[in-house]
Write a protein that binds this DNA or RNA. Sequence first.
RNA 1: UCCCCCUUAGCUCAGUUGGUUAGAGCAUCUGACUGUUAAUCAGAGGGUCCAAAGUUCGAGUCUUUGAGGGGGAGCCA
Length: 480
Amino acid sequence: MIKADIKEILNSNDLLKEFECQGWVRSFRSNRFIALNDGSCLENLQCVVDFESMDEAVLNQINTGAAICIQGTLKESEGSGQRVEIQVEKLTILGEADPEDVRKTILSPKRHSLEKLREQAHLRVRTNTFGAIMRVRSKLSFAVHQYFNENGFNYVHTPIITGSDAEGAGETFKVTNFDLADIPKNEDGSVNFKEDFFGKETNLSVSGQLEAETYAMGLSKVYTFGPTFRAENSNTSRHLAEFWMIEPEVAFCELDGNMDLAEDFIKYVLSYIRKECDSDLAFLEERLLQDEKSKPQAERSPMALREKIDFVLKNNFKRVSYTEAIEILKKSKPNKKKKFQYIIEEWGADLQSEHERYLVEKHFKCPVILFDYPANIKAFYMRLNEDGKTVRAMDILFPGIGEIVGGSQREERYDVLLEKMKALDIDPEELWWYLETRKFGTCKHSGFGLGFERLVLFATGMGNIRDVIPYPRTPLNAEF
RNA sequence: UCCCCCUUAGCUCAGUUGGUUAGAGCAUCUGACUGUUAAUCAGAGGGUCCAAAGUUCGAGUCUUUGAGGGGGAGCCA
């Protein structure tokens, strides 16, 4: 008796050998054919039972959704849909699933909308689509660690609870131990944080960057990969209140090296899943194709999913300075014909997503790295260029996703950084430790943040970020 | 937070100008059939028409407010 998961059995050549495996019934046809799935791969194992010799009570419990254990002989399939199947000799019901209840859930064997699946997020991983997405997500995150490990990076766990709100990356969730019905106040009516757990105001991290920078100043190459929290009231298909972010930080590295790293990294992880997840990607590709059949020709994507990934792998990302991008946009048709909602008139304008989409999807038709942005539309820690008006920032824009990476060379000059903080009203006292790294052996260094779910979005071809994370947290939704 | 759209059976949706008993497909149940691949065939059950208020002889349908969902924008990763 060989105990194996379904992936192993489907790839096995041990015909006529005895196997045992467990899984959940996807469908039971003709009182004879069980489609069994255990999540080890997309494909189901066909288990053939001899219903005439089977206990009727057991037979009646082989319903969609039930967990079962089967023992039987592996043989070549007589049917055409699969190479091998198991002729069942023993079947045990491990967990029942009453069809009357199952039919009210998304487990019922029919097509369900992604919105309906989201309402039953605890069950959706049992569908082909979510099984595929979650396996791709898992392989992608493994590839993240493998890439950095192979390239001499150290994995750093930056704090999730932070005491500084000075990063400016967004609205924060407060962390407190106060009884909310009775919050200690100062005489002037403000909250007395001295009585709180940490003795100061704390919140959930919106970025591990500042702490990662300090570690890069000792380990040279570091990265973080962890949850990130933003309390912004963002209601879009690209934003989550809780998401996973990858943040490498490299000492002795300037912006060009940073761009090289980001591009190499993205290509590595995508090529990894291209090798490891072909049947899942093929399934997602087909799903997308079916989905697009109902759309008008103009809205359909020109490339199939795997083709799109391969295109990114084969082509260099276009590197364009902000100044060049503005020139391209100024001369563009939608700008001249005033089709843009925000017309680009002069240097210094912040790029809206319609402009980014034009550059990526219409003009270059390829991932684009924009760099050297005007200083006044970017964060305080980005390194000021010699021109005094731009900073060494870079954003990577992906078709259909928008900004997937935001990064920069960091300002390593103590005086310049201090001035910048003062100008932007950031209290240097709060970030004393960050400033000290610029006093003791400061050096040029760079890093970026990559939104992991946005990467999964691209890799799976899904359209809504809530469908590439197990339990999405968004405004007004923290179910499960 | 702003703009637009949606909410009718377990699911996806139809429902005419406001009119009598609100329909279909899938799913479920019962029966038939059995090498099926979202099996097939016959039959059955299944409704707080999102909520509240209003207009009207009469509201699934019209009006107002609210809730939830989707798409787009802003903020960003």
